[in-house]
Amino acid sequence: MDGTKSISLFDGKKGDIIRITSMEIEGVMRRRLLDLGFVQGALVEVIRKSPLGDPIAFRVSQTSIALRKEESTRIQGELIRHD
């Protein structure tokens, strides 16, 4: 265990598991992220980058969701597991 280091989803490495603490996104996009399970306390795993590096796919509430850099840099969390 690495303790609780705070990072954004974008900075996570493949295999990292991050517990969401806050999202600096407003409006429709925030509501859409909530619907998909990006809620406070949710565990998110970094799965893979797209061939051109952006977007990145995350595993959240048992599904894979890809987010662009613009959004994933604004979702903060605690690094729970680091491979």
Partner: peptide
């Protein structure tokens, strides 16, 4: 296979 998201 992804009941958690679906039950929402």
């Amino acid at each position: 296979t992804s009941l958690e998201r679906n039950l929402n």
